[in-house]
């Protein structure tokens, strides 16, 4: 059931536009655009990217077809919306580090309920593995986790786009978040285990395999490889997995979706324990994505790969 994955041959983020110049342009130009023209600018940028990025466009259409079982113009519109939402996400991501805490919390339409759900979940264990997906404004979600008053660690997959990664890492460090890169340091798990035992939060994106141990599970009716890391870490530290997503609403507004915590069993059959917890997490991801399929930012064919044997 548990396998080693093949390395990702092509990451969608490795395209010519994902560079420091693009980030600089977004960061400097976006705030100068008069408010009435923001939507129009997003639309124009989306149209340019949608036409120019053939690989990503075709992959998004294939993914959305699997999720929504749609075709034709309706599917194309949804795919265009995905690109449009990604444009909104990138601008929000760049402006985020300059925003005071109050401006961020004001954007969340269900903050009191979300806060209460977070506190209930954290009462179950010393820390928590907060599992999210590349859905909506997940980057803002990480900042919102700081409202719990606990130290937040982020586990990221090294993308191979070095200058972009260092740019994001600098920005997250400024926000008081500690970033750990998978694949660079084999002892990162020990560091995270220690953090969880100290009551801190570890945020992971559980919808993409990071190139280590994974399991093949059905997602929207077809097999996909999902990482076993979140369940392994939660089981080791005896803390819950808390599925948490930040969905983008109209304008700047955000809505937090916090699903019930997943308790990883600790029986003598560790394989089965990890499988069951990851299966439960996959159902949460599926339900969250089904709510906003055009906010699940995967621009590569998700259902193309399966785990290979070690």
């Amino acid at each position: 059931m548990q396998n080693r994955s093949n390395a990702h041959e092509r990451r969608w983020s490795r395209h010519g536009w994902n560079n420091r110049v693009s980030l600089y342009l977004i960061r400097t130009l976006a705030p100068r655009i008069p408010h009435p023209f923001i939507s129009l600018t997003h639309w124009l940028m989306t149209a340019v990217c949608y036409v120019a990025m053939g690989h990503e466009r075709r992959a998004s259409i294939a993914n959305l077809r699997q999720i929504c079982a749609e075709d034709g113009l309706r599917l194309r519109r949804r795919s265009f919306s995905l690109f449009y939402n990604f444009s909104r996400f990138m601008v929000a991501r760049m402006e985020m580090k300059n925003l005071p805490e109050q401006s961020i919390t004001e954007r969340v339409v269900n903050l009191p309920e979300a806060r209460a759900a977070l506190e209930r979940a954290l009462a179950l264990g010393s820390g928590a593995v907060v599992a999210t997906a590349h859905l909506g404004n997940w980057e803002m979600g990480v900042r919102l986790l700081k409202l719990s008053g606990r130290k937040v660690h982020i586990v990221m997959m090294a993308d191979g786009v070095g200058d972009i990664e260092s740019e994001y890492e600098r920005s997250r460090a400024m926000e008081g978040l500690k970033v750990h890169w998978i694949g660079e340091d084999p002892f990162v798990g020990a560091e995270l285990l220690s953090a969880l035992r100290d009551g801190e939060l570890v945020a992971v994106q559980a919808d993409r395999n990071a190139g280590a141990a994974c399991v093949t599970l059905p997602l929207f009716g077809a097999p996909v490889q999902l990482p076993l890391g979140p369940a392994t870490l939660a089981r080791a530290a005896d803390v819950p997995i808390l599925p948490c997503y930040v969905l983008m609403e109209d304008g700047h507004h955000l809505r937090l979706r916090i699903d019930p915590p997943i308790q990883v069993r600790r029986t003598s059959n560790a394989r089965e324990d990890l499988y069951q917890a990851t299966l439960e997490l996959s159902r949460s991801i599926e339900a969250a994505v089904a709510e906003r399929p055009e906010q699940w930012f995967n621009f590569y064919p998700i259902w193309e790969k399966t785990c290979t044997q070690p």
Partner: peptide
């Protein structure tokens, strides 16, 4: 990193020791 994590947990359980950080 996942192998190392599994090994740490097994060692801690078997010998009753605690590996504190990275």
């Amino acid at each position: 990193s996942i192998d190392i994590l599994e090994l740490i947990v097994a060692i801690e359980r078997r010998f009753g020791v605690r590996i504190r950080d990275g």
